[in-house]
Amino acid sequence: MKKVYFLLLIILVGILGVSANFNVYSSLLNDSVGIFRECDESITEPVTYAICVEWEDSERYLNQNCFGVCALFCDAIGNFWGKLACKSGCLGICWKPERRLCIKYDTVTIYPCKGN
């Protein structure tokens, strides 16, 4: 009788083992793994862009070389129109805006969504 129970136990353990193995095996085959990458439905081939990863900001300023040449001699201009135009125009002409310049680039690849 003990022998029969022992045999049954071995058969049960064997079945459970195979079934567990089969589960692992089947999940490896069928489970989809999520890869988070950017895709674009409008493209069919991967596209690589340059993107800026480091910026250098510069403040607005008045270009003093430009302004010096322009404004300091306004009174010396002979014609009345030129004198008036010079007095009001130099500031606008020589003003430099605030700007951002990219100093370091990296690349990013966008894939087509289909088959992603």
């Binding site: 040449v69 322009c70 002979g78 129109w81 004198k83 135009a85």
Partner: peptide, 14 residues
């Protein structure tokens, strides 16, 4: 030109 306002414009209206 050192100073553009020192020159007469192409078309000048007064």
């Amino acid at each position: 030109t050192e100073n553009i306002f020192n020159e007469k414009p192409v078309i000048y209206l007064e």
